[in-house]
Deep mutational scan, measured.
Amino acid sequence: MSGNGNAAATAEENSPKMRVIRVGTRKSQLARIQTDSVVATLKASYPGLQFEIIAMSTTGDKILDTALSKIGEKSLFTKELEHALEKNEVDLVVHSLKDLPTVLPPGFTIGAICKRENPHDAVVFHPKFVGKTLETLPEKSVVGTSSLRRAAQLQRKFPHLEFRSIRGNLNTRLRKLDEQQEFSAIILATAGLQRMGWHNRVGQILHPEECMYAVGQGALGVEVRAKDQDILDLVGVLHDPETLLRCIAERAFLRHLEGGCSVPVAVHTAMKDGQLYLTGGVWSLDGSDSIQETMQATIHVPAQHEDGPEDDPQLVGITARNIPRGPQLAAQNLGISLANLLLSKGAKNILDVARQLNDAH
């Protein structure tokens, strides 16, 4: 009898209710805020589980004197976190989706994509230029951005401005803007500013005609071990179906173009009346040469937790077992079709030249 009692006690200790789920994140304040929001949602869904947040620095956090596009290494903000995932030191990792490459290392998958916040870019102005827009900034004003995508589009749109690289986390960039006289304004992701509670610093939100956004911008991705079915089931509740389908289309477009950090590629997606609209573009580094096109596809946005595919093969690095396969494939095909259209119009040449120029500098 006593033996059975011990077995029952052991089973209770090993039951999922007692389990601590370890969540990996970057150390920056924004990353911690984003991770806290994901953990809060998981806690609400699984009140019996405990969650421990483990923060670590990544290569991208450490190399702050070089433009991201020049470092010449993929997975700048993800490699150390993936290493911890691989060694079973954490069970899942919360990322900004735009930091996750469209091809993940073997053994990993994006197990959830959370509801997207505003994906557009924002302009934050130096205190002396508050009330201005990019259009009304004085001639030769210097605007800071760490992104080739932003610089290429904005140089084309605002030729009277000069664009220079600015690195560091959000706090560091804002301090550089406010305390030094080098920059009249800087460009940042609206979602990051909003998550930090800095709505009052948003001086201008850039519309798609001015600057399309990065693939996955404004959404959070939760990376897990691809074979860890328990954790895949656990994080599945975080999937937002519309965000998922938009981001599958965007990531398929980028992957098929073979774009990345070192080339200016941008997108804009919208879901309306059962249609998914995808606009994508590529630019030369100075913005003088560009190709942009829009395509659409009829896609039914499923309700969360309709029964999805059981075999769960990944699409552009994403596993969404609780979302039907048909809409996911339709979104992926839309991204591939748009990429093929741009490639047929000469996108590869623009991107190759951009890559060579970026590598040469």
Rank of each mutant, 00 (worst) to 15 (best):
K74Q: 15
H300I: 10
A249P: 04
V103Y: 01
S28Q: 01
G236S: 12
I231H: 01
T59F: 15
E223M: 01
K128W: 11
E73S: 11
Q50R: 11
I166Q: 06
E179Y: 10
Q204V: 13
L42S: 01
R355P: 15
K98W: 01
N322D: 15
G48R: 11
H199K: 14
G218V: 05
V237R: 10
L188N: 06
V123A: 11
T243G: 11
V143H: 03
N349G: 11
A331D: 07
N349A: 15
D230Y: 07
L68I: 13
N200G: 09
L154C: 12
M212N: 01
A84T: 11
V237F: 07
L285Y: 15
S344N: 14
V202D: 09
Q29Y: 08
G111Q: 01
R195T: 01
V142M: 10
Q194L: 09
Q314W: 10
F77A: 04
P159C: 13
G346F: 07
L343Y: 01
S146F: 10
N88G: 09
L329S: 13
R325A: 09
M295W: 09
Q328E: 13
H160K: 14
H239K: 05
T269R: 01
N200A: 12
L81N: 01
L42F: 09
A270Y: 06
D228E: 15
P127A: 09
K272F: 12
Q356H: 13
N200K: 14
T78N: 10
A152L: 13
R251I: 03
T136W: 14
S146D: 05
R26S: 01
K27I: 10
D233N: 13
F125L: 11
L278R: 04
T190Y: 07
H126A: 10
K98N: 06
C211M: 15
D121I: 01
I205P: 01
V235R: 01
Q29F: 07
Q296L: 13
R156E: 11
A55E: 15
K140H: 08
R255L: 01
S146P: 04
S141I: 06
E210D: 09
T59K: 08
G274I: 01
V235W: 01
H95Y: 03
P159I: 08
N333I: 15
T298E: 10
Q181F: 10
E310T: 01
L245F: 06
I71F: 11
A214L: 03
T269V: 01
L285Q: 07
H207F: 08
N358R: 15
L154A: 06
L137Y: 04
D228N: 13
R175V: 13
K62L: 05
L49K: 07
D233L: 03
L206W: 04
F163D: 04
A151M: 04
V222T: 01
L68E: 07
P101R: 01
L170V: 11
E179M: 10
A331N: 01
E80I: 09
V282M: 08
Q296P: 07
Q34S: 10
E210V: 11
T190Q: 15
V235A: 03
G111M: 01
I71L: 12
P106G: 09
A303I: 15
P324I: 04
E179D: 07
R325G: 13
T243A: 01
K227Q: 09
S290V: 08
H95Q: 11
N340I: 15
E258F: 06
N169T: 08
D178Y: 13
N118F: 10
L278D: 01
R355K: 05
Y277A: 13
V23L: 10
K74G: 09
S75V: 06
G216S: 12
M196T: 06
H199Q: 06
F183V: 14
P302T: 14
P327R: 01
S337F: 01
N88E: 08
F51S: 06
R225T: 07
F77W: 10
I166H: 09
T190A: 13
E209V: 03
L134D: 01
G72I: 13
H256T: 14
D121T: 01
K98Y: 01
L342R: 01
D273F: 01
Q155I: 15
K87T: 12
E250H: 01
V23P: 01
E73I: 07
M271I: 15
L257V: 14
E82A: 12
V143N: 03
F77G: 01
L85I: 07
G48D: 13
E223C: 15
K74M: 03
A347W: 01
L30A: 01
S57T: 07
R321M: 07
S28I: 01
A320E: 11
K98L: 01
A330V: 14
K87Y: 15
A189Y: 01
R225M: 12
E242A: 14
V267Q: 01
A122E: 05
H300S: 08
I71C: 09
G287A: 05
N169C: 05
H207G: 11
I205A: 08
G221M: 01
K272Q: 09
G197K: 03
L85E: 03
R321S: 12
G236F: 01
L92I: 12
V215W: 01
P127D: 06
Y213Q: 06
L351R: 07
H126I: 15
A44V: 13
R32H: 07
G317P: 11
V215L: 07
S28R: 01
D311H: 14
D121E: 06
H300Q: 11
E293C: 07
Q304K: 14
F51E: 04
D307Q: 04
A360P: 01
G197T: 04
A44N: 13
L341A: 01
G280I: 01
F51R: 01
H305E: 15
D178N: 09
A226N: 03
D312G: 09
S37F: 11
G274K: 08
H120E: 14
P138K: 10
V39C: 10
P241M: 15
P105T: 11
S96K: 01
Q181I: 07
R22W: 15
N88C: 13
A303S: 10
V103N: 09
S147F: 01
Q34D: 03
F129Q: 13
K157A: 13
G236L: 05
R22V: 14
I71K: 12
E210G: 04
T298S: 13
V20F: 09
D289W: 13
G259C: 10
N358A: 15
P313K: 08
S344I: 14
E258W: 03
Q34T: 05
C211F: 15
G317W: 12
A303L: 15
T279D: 04
D286V: 11
R167W: 07
S290K: 07
E293F: 07
A189I: 01
N171Q: 12
C261F: 05
E86W: 04
T136P: 05
V353N: 15
I291T: 09
D61W: 06
L315W: 10
T35V: 09
G221W: 01
E52W: 04
R116Q: 05
G216F: 05
H95D: 04
E86Q: 12
L285N: 15
E135R: 13
L254I: 01
P159M: 08
H207P: 11
I53S: 08
I336F: 10
P159V: 14
E135V: 14
K79S: 14
M212P: 05
E210T: 08
I113M: 01
H83F: 11
E162T: 05
Q180I: 04
A354N: 01
S45L: 08
V94A: 01
V301C: 08
G317Y: 07
D99M: 04
L137F: 07
V20P: 10
W283N: 12
S288N: 07
K43F: 06
P241L: 01
M295K: 12
K348R: 15
K27R: 15
P313T: 07
S69R: 11
T25L: 01
G60E: 01
M212Q: 03
M56E: 12
L148C: 09
I71G: 09
G48E: 13
I318G: 07
L232T: 12
A112F: 01
A84E: 07
S290A: 01
E117I: 15
L68R: 12
G274H: 05
P159K: 10
G48S: 12
H126D: 09
M271Y: 15
T109S: 09
D311A: 15
A219Y: 04
M212L: 14
V267K: 08
H160M: 14
F108E: 15
D230V: 11
V130P: 12
V267C: 14
E293K: 11
Q275E: 05
I54P: 01
R19G: 13
I166G: 04
Q229C: 14
N322F: 14
T298C: 08
D240S: 01
R255G: 14
V124R: 03
F129D: 08
